[in-house]
Write a protein that binds this DNA or RNA. Structure first.
Lengths: 151, 151
DNA sequence: CCCATTTCATTTAACCTTAAACTATTTAAT
DNA sequence: ATTAAATAGTTTAAGGTTAAATGAAATGGG
């Protein structure tokens, strides 16, 4: 068939690509981390606040789906955001099991400020790639990332 | 220069690519997780064992550099591997601050078995991409993970 | 209506992860 | 040789992360 041969090549390429992708994720995260953590936000908290800023109030279930994290994890991160006075939990009047999480004014002004610095740090982290490469990377990662919550 | 206009486009593309890359990393990790955790190894433990299998005994410093993790993290993961009888710490005779970590026979046979299943799961996780796409993805991620340089 | 099932959120245990402070050792400068 | 600085590893505190078990509310079939 000849597929054995090319299959081996692909296997090696996959292992290589996966290592590179993992390392790229860690490297970029470490580069953008200071832009977020200087404001006493963790990366996880930042991710939730940014989502609320751009999408409006969301249930914890939806938040969990969008960040691809477990329900218990969402509880913990939101607990800490509530403790710090940045968000509020509201009971969903249509389903009393559900908690709608909403930005409070202090949380909103904080995330607006931090988000701008985060974008700048991200641009620096991506300096090694030109526009075309960034677009190709996005397209390939999208293809790879589908399969769970393809929103 | 006209860079303002294209700069805005690139900014948007970067934000998009970063989200996609992060999600791809989480998605692939979740797909390969069962192949590793069925053997009562965590993903972090698997990463260290695989490195020792393919590179031989290493100091904790080198391990930390290769997995891009903090010194304290390396201590914790190796502590648990030592506790489970999979690896051993040896004092480096040339530098008594340094601990060389070495696979024990049980650890070796375990990681050899698990690694094969991990590769199979990885191939399935990458099914959406063809060989050429995998190679391009690897090349772009390498460039991104280094910051500059790259092939 | 009643009961089984499903769903959203929470709790717990175990581990991962980081930054910061610390110990022990090595290296380098005087 | 003495001492200051750098380095390898450890500890601690705070938080992130998952799986699994639980409670509470909604849903659906009889």
């Amino acid at each position: 068939m000849g597929t054995q041969y090319s299959g081996d090549y692909k296997r090696v390429a996959i292992l290589d690509a996966w290592i590179k992708l993992s390392r790229a994720g860690i490297t970029v995260t470490q580069k953008i981390r200071p832009s977020v953590e200087k404001s006493n936000l963790t990366m996880a908290q930042f991710g939730v606040l940014e989502m609320l800023l751009h999408l409006g109030p969301l249930s914890q279930k939806v938040i969990g789906l969008k960040i691809l994290r477990s329900p218990g994890n969402v509880v913990m991160v939101i607990d800490n955001l509530v403790r710090d006075g940045l968000v509020r939990r509201n009971v969903n009047p249509h389903d009393r099991r559900s908690h709608i999480v909403e930005l409070l004014p202090i949380g909103r002004s904080l995330i607006e400020k931090v988000f701008e610095k985060h974008v700048q740090a991200l641009e620096q982290a991506f300096e090694a790639l030109n526009s075309a490469e960034v677009r190709v990377l996005g397209r390939l990662c999208k293809k790879l990332g589908l399969g769970i919550d393809a929103t």
